[in-house]
Design a protein around this nucleic acid. Structure first.
Length: 439
RNA sequence: GCGAUCAUAGCUCAGUUGGUUAGAGCGCCGGUUUGUGGUACCGGAGGUCGCGGGUUCGAGCCCCGUUGAUCGCCCCA
């Protein structure tokens, strides 16, 4: 090792808004993904993988050019061939693109699920990162409200299996079909225009870009105006009303609790009919844990055939943060401790023997003997195996399985494994296992 | 993109109105004691006080800038 400081390179920092996970949080993260994989199979959703990079147009066209995600949060760049590429900021658009380009219409209605990293150039804060991770479930090619309901029941079961349904509520709204939505939007614009002078600065900007968003503004200035704005209900076509009724009936039939939130709108342009969020107040400002809705126009927007579809996405980090209690740790059954330097090779051999025999085992080999033992205990192992090679000198080694808590099954398994490779003498009295001749 | 708070050892933090050689606990390394034992004791390694400027005889402490984290706004999962 050189002590020449001039040769030292300054350590690069992690990119802002990215995370390195180790230990507890990494375990929680994996736990969320495992639960999702389990439940998704129960509901018959096929696992799919789609690219992390897509042509920029995939997102620009489908999310809406004026949405914040597209206008200022995408990681876009030109590749060496001059094509504009974007790191996916969400799953839905990429999945819709895959549906069209691969001719997945032949499988419609198609239920798919995936998870992985997404990228958005945002100011990091609690539950919000530049590289973040989502679970995603979609039903493509179904115009049935049953699909919406099933997706919601799926989401509800996932949250329950994660043990976080408590304190998380499903809020539900309908944005109607295209006709309903356009009529409502026009009425909203008229209403807000009439109160233009009382609106916050943010909402004035929203008035041009996405007037629906004024409805869920947090600015106290906006609240009275937003609250007095017309609900969509008056503008819903009969068809749209029936659709929403069928979705809620499906929820009621399966016992999924929900709340109507007539102020709930979605940020992305493609949503129609059902819109929903599972929200909590346990995550500060980032209260949405799972959200989604129906996006019947999206696939057509991408140049595909008119295709109805619904889906949702959930933030894995946010779900992981809500997980309370201690996770069941993956602890070794046995930790092997070499009594001395010379015993290490025998330890490695026995360690491999146990692992091949499906015993979860690890080895503590740094520090003095006392610290090795402490390290072994700290690992949560049930038992500790002391290995001393070449003592008495005529033997290959002696083993002592300590901390016997629950009797002999593990000891028996270990002895069986050892007998495959060695002549074993198991002294009942001293509990000392002596290995002599190799077989 | 806007606002607020923060940044000292591997970790959690203390550090007085600016004043000698920057501390503690935990962790790490070595040892003593004990000897089926996560609890005692001794010793050791480890810090350009985030980074760059400035004020001052003197800056971990004051000022400016910068980077990052955290919490809001915004946005969204």
């Amino acid at each position: 090792m050189s002590k020449d400081k001039s040769a030292k390179i300054p350590t690069p920092q992690a990119v802002r808004g990215t995370q390195d996970m180790l230990g507890d949080f990494a375990d929680r993260f994996a736990y969320v993904v495992e639960a999702f994989e389990r439940v998704r199979r129960l509901y018959g959703y096929k696992r799919i993988e789609v690219p992390v990079i897509e042509p920029t147009a995939v997102f620009a066209r489908s999310l809406g050019e004026t949405t914040d995600v597209v206008s200022k949060e995408m990681y876009s760049f030109e590749d060496r061939g001059g094509e504009s590429i974007t790191l996916r900021p969400e799953f839905t658009a990429g999945i819709a693109r895959a549906y069209v380009t691969n001719g997945w219409q032949q499988f419609a209605p198609l239920k798919v699920a995936t998870h992985g990293p997404l990228f958005r150039y945002e100011r990091p804060q609690k539950g919000r990162y530049r590289q973040f991770h989502q679970l995603d479930a979609e039903v493509l090619g179904s115009d049935s409200p049953l699909a919406d309901a099933e997706l919601l029941v799926f989401a509800d079961q996932l949250l329950k299996e994660l043990g976080i349904a408590e304190g998380v509520t499903l809020t539900l709204n309908t944005l109607g079909d295209a006709a309903s939505r356009d009529a409502w939007r026009a009425a909203l614009v008229e209403h807000f225009e009439a109160h233009r002078s009382e609106l916050s600065e943010d909402s004035l900007a929203r008035l041009d870009k996405n007037p629906l968003r004024i409805l869920d503004s947090k600015d106290p200035k906006d609240r009275p105006i937003a609250d007095s704005a017309p609900d969509i209900d008056a503008f819903l076509t009969g068809e749209a009303q029936d659709f929403f009724g069928a979705v809620t009936a499906g929820l009621d039939a399966t016992g999924v609790a929900w709340e109507r939130n007539a102020r709930l709108v979605r940020g992305l342009d493609y949503y129609r009919h059902t819109a929903f969020e599972f929200v909590t107040d346990r995550l500060g400002a980032q209260g949405t844990v799972l959200g989604g809705g129906r996006y019947d126009g999206l696939i057509e927007n991408l140049g595909g055939p008119p295709t109805p579809a619904v889906g949702w996405a959930a933030g894995i980090e946010r779900l992981a943060m809500l997980l309370d209690g201690d996770l069941r740790q993956e602890v070794p059954e046995v930790v092997v401790i070499p009594q001395n330097e010379d015993s290490t090779p025998l330890c490695i051999e026995i360690l491999a023997l146990m692992r091949r025999g499906k015993i979860k085992a690890d080895m503590a080999y740094t520090g003095n003997e006392k610290r090795r033992f402490e390290r072994a205990k700290k690992s949560g192992a049930w038992k500790v195996l002391n290995v001393d090679a070449g003592y008495p000198s005529t033997d290959i080694g002696t083993l002592r399985l300590r901390n016997l808590v629950d009797g002999l099954p593990l000891r028996k398994r270990l002895l069986d494994l050892l007998r495959e490779g060695f002549i074993v003498d198991d002294d009942e009295e001293t509990r000392l296992i002596t290995l002599s001749v190799r077989k």
